[in-house]
């Protein structure tokens, strides 16, 4: 859209958190940036990986399967970083956000994909946590490592760690 006006601005973001509130922040910023014509890279690692998952079980080894059970499901299972209360907080915030007509987290994520936000899983944490690419929703790019992220961050006008 705006090649002639200098270069396209870009945003590079690490999403390490799987907390509902932080994921909201990440996806609101990402969709906003994409709408403003920026190229957006989101690099999901560790607890953030679940935000990319379908609601499928993961894990090969005993520990991997245990993690898949205890931190399983998809983005709709994310709990707020405060006010968790074993799922009560998620329910309460869900209600409150619904009452205020805020988009659901899962809808924001899917909107981000529609807007062309580039999402990548971190290969190393996917290996460690035994979460394969096949467990991710469509639209997530093939896994990359920190070198790729750092190159994107070097070139970016804004970089964030969430």
């Amino acid at each position: 859209m705006s090649e002639e006006e200098s270069h396209q601005k870009s945003l590079a973001m690490v999403v390490m958190s799987g907390d509902m509130d932080k994921l909201f922040g990440a996806f609101i910023i990402a969709t906003g940036a994409a709408a403003m014509g920026m190229e957006v890279t989101m690099f999901f690692t560790f607890w953030g990986l679940r935000a990319l998952k379908k609601n499928v079980s993961t894990g090969k080894t005993f520990f991997g399967r245990m993690l898949g059970l205890m931190y399983g499901g998809d983005i709709t299972k994310s709990n707020p970083s405060k006010f968790g209360f074993g799922g009560m907080g998620r329910w309460m915030f869900g209600k409150m956000m619904g009452n205020h007509n805020v988009s659901k987290l899962i809808d924001l994520r899917d909107l981000a994909i529609d807007l062309g936000v580039n999402m990548y899983g971190c290969q190393m944490s996917m290996d460690v946590m035994e979460i394969p690419q096949e467990s991710f929703i469509g639209g997530v790019k093939e896994p990359v490592g920190v070198g790729f992220f750092l190159l994107k961050a070097q070139e970016a006008d804004i970089s964030l760690f969430i």
Partner: peptide, 10 residues
């Protein structure tokens, strides 16, 4: 609500 008004315009 945020960010949707801006996203829809875009």
């Amino acid at each position: 609500l945020c960010p949707l008004p801006m996203v829809k315009v875009s």
